[in-house]
Amino acid sequence: MTTLEQTETTGEGHDVRRRDFINIAAVSFAGVGAVAVVLPLVNQMNPSADVLALASIEVDISKIAPGQAIKTLWRKQPVFIRNLTPKEIAEANAVPLSELRDPQTLAERTTAGKENWLITLGVCTHLGCVPLGAGEGENRGPFGGYFCPCHGSAYDTAARIRKGPAPKNLQVPEHSFKSDTVVQIG
């Protein structure tokens, strides 16, 4: 290989090529090093270990009577846990999917066998306000679910968007029932 090249190029040209190669390699190494340093500098802004440790919580739901809801905090965001009454479940199931902006059935938004437990983020999908309706005596809006006072988004008993500017239903976080009285969110 080397001899071949030597016959093809003058000694001078070969030398120049080898030199360019070293300079290019040195600059490339510097570039790779710079990128390797940038990665942790960017990564440090991701959630830290203590924040991630709070990414899943367990909530005792034994004290929530049908028709009541509680607000709790998960990942520094409000979560609504509502114990639906049979009437509310019936209302939600009575709505044809075609009428919905973000079509989803109540069953899709709850756990099988626990359809009365509606667990959603308390964050309006429009611009992030906390909707009313989880607290005792709060305005639940024209569809009997939640009502966002900021721009008038109204959610129904399954927390689906029915009216107003919000594009999506209230988000259902990943959750599972540890027992009849304890639910793990996240």
């Binding site: 030199r19 070293i22 300079n23 390699a25 040195a26 600059v27 190494f29 510097a30 790779v32 090093g33 390797a36």
Partner: peptide, 19 residues
């Protein structure tokens, strides 16, 4: 290890340019 290789290359480049 990375920096030693990079520094070696930098030295070679330096000698090159100054040759």
């Amino acid at each position: 290890i990375f920096l030693l290789i990079a520094t070696g290359l930098a030295f070679a480049a330096y000698r090159n340019i100054w040759s």
